[in-house]
Design a protein around this nucleic acid. Structure first.
Lengths: 152, 152
DNA sequence: ATATGTTTTGCATATTAATACAAGCAAAAC
DNA sequence: GTTTTGCTTGTATTAATATGCAAAACATAT
C-alpha cells in the first residue's frame, strides 16, 4: 500500500497547498488512507519532498522539479510494481497497469516535471501520456520497457 | 547586519552539511555573528532555503538551484544595498561594493548556481567573477547595472 | 536632542517534524 | 508448521522549527 500512498501524496501536494504533515494526513484520510504523522514524515523523507516558501508567504510541501535523478528512481520502483504493457499512437502513449495503479504511475510521471510531457490522465488500470511529439512518446516507451526489463 | 548574515548563511550552507538551525547558529557564532535559532528560522524563510535529504540520508539545508527566480530577487536586494561600480576586462568582471559587502554579493552570486559563472572571489569591498566567456561578463555587467537603476 | 515610525531581534512558547522502539505481517528458509 | 528475516507502521517521545509579543536598534522628521 505504500507506493499507492506515495503516489497519492505526490498527487495531493501538487493540487493543494499542504502546509503541514498533519494537513497531508487529513487529505489522505479523505482518500481512505489512514496513516499517522510519523508515517508521513517517513514518506516525505523517502520521496525527498521539501517544504518551500510559497509565493503567498506560507510554507508548502513540494517535489522539487529535478532533484538530481531521485524521482527517476521512484518512477523505476513504481513502474516495476505496476507496469503491464505499453503502446503509443502518434504523440499519445498508453500505459496499462495493474488494477488501481494507474494513478500512481501518472502522479510519478507528473512529478518528474518533464517539459516533453504535456499532460497525463489516469483511470484505474490505464493511463495516457500526451507527449510534445511522436518521437517523445516513442522514447518514453523505450525507456519504460527498458526499466521493466531491468536494463539501465 | 542582516544582509551580511544572510550572505554568510549562504556561504556556510554551501560549504558545510548543516542539519539543523542550531548547527547554523553555531557556525555563525564562530564567525562572530551571534544570533538565536529564532532569527535563523526567519532568515531561512527570507532566503527561501529548504531542508533536503542529502545523499548520505541526512537532512541538510540548501539553496535550491533555480527556485523560480527567487535568488534573483535576493541578488537584487543585495546589489541595491551594496553596489558601487562594475567593470570587466576579458572574461573577468570586477564589482566594487560598499566596505564589507563584497562577500555578500559573492555568496549570492554563487547561490544562483549559474553555469556561466566559473567562480567568484571576494575581498572586503571588491569582488571578481570569472565568467565562462567575455560575452557573459558583459551580459552580467548589463544585468547588474540595470538592477541598480531599477530597470527590470 | 526628542519624538515617531520602522525594522530587527530575543525570549518564551506553540507548533510541527523526526525517530527509537516495539508490534504486526508476509515471504523465504528451514 | 515453525522460525527467521525484512519491511511497514503506530505509539510515545524527543528534537527541531515557527511565531506572538515586547524590547532594542535604527532611521527620520520635528
Amino acid at each position: 500500500m505504500k507506493y499507492n500512498r506515495h503516489a497519492k501524496i505526490l498527487d495531493i501536494i501538487e493540487n493543494y497547498e499542504i502546509e503541514t504533515q498533519d494537513d497531508l494526513a487529513e487529505k489522505l484520510r479523505e482518500s481512505g488512507m489512514d496513516v499517522t504523522q510519523a508515517t508521513i514524515s517517513r514518506d516525505i523523507k523517502e520521496l525527498r519532498l521539501v517544504k518551500v516558501l510559497s509565493s503567498g508567504g506560507k510554507y508548502r510541501y513540494s517535489a522539487m522539479n529535478s532533484d538530481g535523478g531521485n524521482m527517476n528512481d521512484r518512477l523505476l520502483v513504481i513502474i516495476k510494481e505496476a507496469y503491464v504493457s505499453c503502446d503509443y499512437a502518434n504523440n499519445i502513449l498508453v500505459i496499462k497497469t495493474l488494477p488501481g495503479m494507474a494513478q500512481a504511475v501518472a502522479a510519478t510521471l507528473d512529478a518528474l516535471g518533464w517539459n516533453d510531457i504535456v499532460g497525463t490522465i489516469a483511470g484505474d488500470d490505464t493511463m495516457m501520456v500526451v507527449c510534445r511529439a511522436e518521437k517523445i512518446a516513442e522514447d518514453l516507451m523505450d525507456k519504460l520497457t527498458r526499466m521493466v526489463r531491468g536494463v539501465s
